[in-house]
Amino acid sequence: MSRALLIVDVQNDFTEGGALAVEGGDAVAAAVTLFLAAHADDYDVIIASRDWHDADGDNGGHFALAPDYVDSWPVHCVAGTEGAEYDPLLATDAVTHHVRKGQGKPAYSMFEGRTEAGETVGAILTAAGALTADVVGIATDHCVRATALDAIAHGVRVRIFTDLVAGVASAPSEAALAELVHAGAEVAESPDA
Rank of each mutant, 00 (worst) to 15 (best):
M1T: 15
A4E: 15
L6I: 08
I7S: 00
D9V: 07
V10H: 03
F14E: 01
T15E: 08
E16D: 04
A19Y: 07
G24K: 06
D26M: 03
L36C: 03
A38H: 01
I46D: 01
I46K: 01
I46R: 03
A48V: 05
R50C: 12
D54M: 02
A55F: 04
A55G: 14
A55N: 03
N59E: 09
G60Y: 00
F63H: 08
A64R: 01
A64N: 04
L65H: 14
L65Y: 11
A66T: 13
D68I: 04
D68H: 01
Y69C: 00
V70M: 01
S72W: 04
W73N: 02
H76N: 10
H76E: 06
H76Q: 08
C77V: 00
V78Q: 03
A79L: 00
G80K: 10
T81Y: 01
T81I: 05
G83V: 02
A84E: 03
L89F: 15
L90S: 04
A91N: 03
A91S: 09
D93I: 10
V95W: 11
H97Q: 06
H98W: 01
V99C: 08
R100V: 09
G102K: 05
K105R: 15
Y108T: 12
Y108D: 08
M110W: 00
F111I: 08
E112G: 05
E112L: 10
E112D: 14
G113N: 10
T115M: 12
T115S: 13
E116S: 14
G118I: 09
T120I: 05
G122Q: 09
G122W: 05
G122M: 11
A123N: 13
A123M: 14
A123C: 13
I124M: 12
A128D: 02
A130Y: 09
L131I: 13
A133M: 00
A133T: 02
A133I: 01
D134K: 11
V135H: 04
V136E: 13
D141W: 01
D141I: 00
C143A: 13
V144G: 14
T147V: 07
D150K: 11
D150I: 06
A153S: 13
A153N: 12
A153P: 03
R159G: 12
T162E: 14
L164S: 12
A166F: 12
G167W: 05
G167K: 07
P172A: 02
S173G: 12
E174V: 11
E174N: 15
A175N: 03
A176G: 03
E179F: 06
L180Y: 12
H182E: 14
G184V: 12
A185Q: 10
E186R: 15
A188T: 03
S190H: 08
D192K: 10
D192A: 12
A193Q: 00
